[in-house]
Lab assay of single mutants.
Amino acid sequence: MAEQVALSRTQVCGILREELFQGDAFHQSDTHIFIIMGASGDLAKKKIYPTIWWLFRDGLLPENTFIVGYARSRLTVADIRKQSEPFFKATPEEKLKLEDFFARNSYVAGQYDDAASYQRLNSHMNALHLGSQANRLFYLALPPTVYEAVTKNIHESCMSQIGWNRIIVEKPFGRDLQSSDRLSNHISSLFREDQIYRIDHYLGKEMVQNLMVLRFANRIFGPIWNRDNIACVILTFKEPFGTEGRGGYFDEFGIIRDVMQNHLLQMLCLVAMEKPASTNSDDVRDEKVKVLKCISEVQANNVVLGQYVGNPDGEGEATKGYLDDPTVPRGSTTATFAAVVLYVENERWDGVPFILRCGKALNERKAEVRLQFHDVAGDIFHQQCKRNELVIRVQPNEAVYTKMMTKKPGMFFNPEESELDLTYGNRYKNVKLPDAYERLILDVFCGSQMHFVRSDELREAWRIFTPLLHQIELEKPKPIPYIYGSRGPTEADELMKRVGFQYEGTYKWVNP
């Protein structure tokens, strides 16, 4: 592979701008107003304001973009700056750019259920340069409990009458099928589907988006991507930290609602779906819905739930269990780990287990898709061969690698495990991989909904998990304890083995 010439960040961002501006969906010269509902909250200060700053800094926003914060707290732009700027990672050389960014910011205080507050917000936006005809993007960085009041008031008082209007809704989209349907029906009564952007930030990850290209742009994968060759698929999300004093919020939802029903299920769809007619948003989402419709409700015998306990040999936070978090209700049975087996009941995947695993306070930070292939028929190497695996590593250190057998150097035919490896950090030294939120917010500006969740996708996802969630809430089974920093409950490994996964433990990928 030829040595790549190092590029400056300015040059890299210039390439990104060229890609972005050559499309006809990006209205570079139009006025846009980006409204952050819930501007005083954690999500706004840690993710949304920093993301908008990065896009502005790199010249990736339309030229005439204004940012308006809205929340109940009586704040000023200076207050917003004070709480969000520490997350910007701005350099001293960017000081003038930073001043320009905050000059485009404003803030309006108001209630979430008060019509007069929204009329005041609308008047404020109209007073901005060309504000009355601007395109408006409303980001709901809010708890779902206020979605209905907020969307109703936005629709009645704050819509642009000339430009387009788009609304970005953060997960969780309800707690179960019934609450999700209620919320979807409410929002759909106010906005068209092409105006609604239900954001799952995992769909903005580079390697998640790469799944489609790997599958449908490489001839070698087509013939082997089926039940005849693939023994099982494992989708993993692991965090090495616990709730760390923020367990009160987590306890309301648990690990299945927080990660599995959305992030992991979306990745499953991209692995299992048929080739779409095109890369058009609805063509892709149509195929994802077909996959979900082929999955039956989760069966309790295919589920393992766990909850982390303190590690007596650990240090600091590792010595504390979930129930030691003062914000967690006493005696909570909320799971911090889950392993679930699903089956896609169609011709391509009949009988292939899709194993979804996620948890907190585990032994490493990792998100990946792992396809394990069947054993080689007619073994001539005296059971020395391990199964081939194709691994798409989402985070950290984005990579695609194939675990395969090669001859060990020497005189004899002794096979050993090795890999074919594409590590993004080595291959793409001159490429700026956008943060997931950067990519998705740019998608909203461009009107691309491919990486957002459609209402029928959402409904099918909740259909699969709601009976299990209701059973857990009714019966309150005690989750299996696992030690902070471990791989999780051993019962999860036993479940995976029972459905056909072979864990060798003899080879570990190392970032080159």
Rank of each mutant, 00 (worst) to 15 (best):
A78N: 15
A109K: 14
T145Y: 06
G254W: 00
R215F: 00
F101S: 02
F138G: 02
Y249V: 02
E94T: 07
L128D: 05
I199D: 00
Q22T: 13
F102L: 08
I48E: 01
I199F: 06
F56Q: 04
A109C: 13
G248W: 01
A71H: 02
T31W: 13
E63M: 12
T10R: 15
I162V: 15
N185S: 14
G248V: 01
F101C: 00
G23W: 12
S123M: 13
E193N: 01
N153F: 11
P50W: 02
D30E: 15
V208G: 01
Q22Y: 14
E193I: 03
H27T: 08
Y49E: 03
Q22K: 12
Q195K: 06
D42W: 01
S73W: 02
L190T: 10
L60I: 12
G163D: 01
D113P: 08
Q28L: 09
G110C: 07
Y249P: 03
G163C: 09
S179W: 02
Y112A: 02
I255H: 04
N126S: 11
I255N: 00
E239R: 02
L16Y: 12
F66E: 10
G14D: 15
I35H: 02
Q133S: 14
L55K: 00
R81T: 07
L121C: 06
Q83D: 13
F191N: 01
N153P: 03
V169T: 06
S179Y: 02
D251Y: 02
K95G: 13
M212G: 03
R81F: 11
P62F: 04
S179Q: 07
T151A: 12
W225L: 01
F216M: 02
I35E: 03
E63G: 13
Y70S: 09
K97G: 08
Y49P: 01
W53T: 01
G254S: 07
L43P: 02
L142A: 04
D24I: 11
E156P: 07
N210S: 10
N153T: 08
I154S: 05
L142M: 05
V169A: 08
N64W: 06
A141W: 03
Y107F: 14
A134S: 15
M159Y: 11
W53F: 06
W53S: 01
L75C: 10
L43V: 06
S84R: 03
V208Y: 04
F241T: 06
A90S: 07
I36L: 06
G245W: 07
S117L: 08
E99N: 15
V146D: 02
N122V: 12
N165V: 10
N105C: 15
K46M: 04
T151L: 10
E19H: 15
F191W: 10
I80T: 05
M125E: 00
E85S: 10
V108A: 07
K152E: 14
A141S: 08
W53A: 00
G59T: 04
A71D: 01
P144V: 02
R215V: 02
F26I: 09
G174I: 04
D200Q: 05
A217H: 01
Y147S: 00
K205W: 00
R182C: 06
R81M: 10
Y49M: 09
E239S: 06
D30H: 12
I80R: 01
D176I: 04
S157D: 13
N153I: 08
N165W: 02
S180L: 06
R219T: 10
H201G: 01
I154D: 02
F253A: 11
Q119H: 12
D176Y: 01
Q119Y: 15
L75E: 07
F241G: 06
G248I: 00
H201A: 01
D24T: 08
S184Q: 11
S29I: 10
H129K: 15
I230S: 00
W53I: 01
H155Y: 13
G38L: 03
Q83R: 13
T151I: 11
T65C: 13
T10S: 15
I255F: 05
P223Q: 11
L7F: 09
F253L: 02
R104W: 06
S184R: 02
F102C: 06
S117N: 15
Y107T: 08
D176P: 02
E93N: 15
R81P: 04
R227E: 05
A115T: 13
R227S: 13
G245H: 12
I255D: 00
E193F: 03
Q178E: 10
L235A: 09
A116W: 11
F250K: 08
Y197N: 05
L142C: 04
K205D: 00
M37P: 04
P92F: 12
N185V: 09
L214R: 05
L75G: 08
S160I: 07
P86A: 13
F21V: 11
Q11G: 12
A90F: 09
S117W: 09
Q111L: 12
I199K: 00
T91M: 14
C158I: 06
F216R: 04
T51I: 08
Y118N: 04
F191C: 05
A103W: 10
I67A: 03
V68G: 06
S123T: 14
L96S: 14
F241K: 03
V77I: 15
W164G: 08
N210G: 08
G174F: 01
K95V: 09
R81A: 10
T236I: 05
Q178I: 12
N153G: 13
D200H: 02
N64D: 12
I52R: 03
L211Q: 07
E244L: 14
R215N: 00
M37W: 05
I230Y: 00
R175G: 07
L130T: 15
I67H: 05
D58Y: 13
S8W: 04
I80S: 06
V108F: 12
A25V: 12
R198E: 04
L130I: 14
T236E: 14
K47R: 09
V150F: 00
D30P: 08
K205I: 04
R74S: 14
T151N: 09
K45V: 08
G245M: 11
H129T: 15
L130S: 15
P92G: 12
Q28D: 10
F237S: 06
S180R: 05
I167Q: 03
R57D: 04
S132R: 15
M207N: 10
E244I: 12
R219S: 09
A71R: 00
G38P: 02
I33F: 11
E252H: 15
H201P: 01
N126L: 15
K47P: 01
F191E: 01
E3I: 06
N105G: 02
A231D: 07
A116G: 13
A141F: 00
N122P: 00
G247N: 05
W225H: 05
L128T: 09
I52W: 01
D228N: 10
M212K: 04
T10G: 08
L137P: 03
G254P: 03
G174M: 01
F250R: 04
I80E: 00
Y112N: 02
Q11R: 11
Y118R: 00
Q195D: 09
F221M: 15
I234R: 14
A90L: 10
Y70D: 04
D181E: 13
V108L: 08
L60T: 02
K238E: 00
F21N: 12
V169Y: 08
R104I: 11
I168H: 04
L75A: 13
I256K: 00
F221Q: 05
T243F: 00
D79T: 10
I162S: 12
T31D: 09
R17S: 13
L75H: 11
S184L: 09
S180V: 04
H186T: 09
F101T: 02
M37N: 04
L43D: 02
R72Q: 01
R72T: 00
F26C: 01
N226R: 07
Q133I: 14
N122S: 12
S106K: 09
R175W: 04
I230F: 06
Q22F: 14
W54L: 11
F253W: 02
Q119I: 13
K238T: 01
F237D: 04
S157G: 12
D24H: 11
H124P: 01
E99G: 11
S84G: 10
L98A: 06
I52C: 09
F101L: 02
I220E: 02
I48Y: 05
S106G: 07
S84E: 09
A39F: 05
N229F: 05
L20T: 06
W225R: 02
A134F: 09
K46A: 01
T31V: 15
Y49V: 05
F216L: 03
A78Q: 14
R57F: 01
L96H: 15
K47F: 04
R120H: 13
V233R: 01
R182W: 10
D200T: 05
G245C: 11
F138Q: 02
S73D: 00
F250S: 05
F101A: 02
I199H: 04
V146S: 05
A25L: 08
D200V: 04
P86S: 09
T31L: 08
F138Y: 13
G163M: 06
I80M: 11
G23E: 15
F34W: 07
F66H: 14
S73Y: 03
V12T: 15
N165D: 08
F191L: 10
C232F: 01
Y118E: 00
T76A: 10
E244F: 09
F138L: 05
A109G: 14
G254I: 04
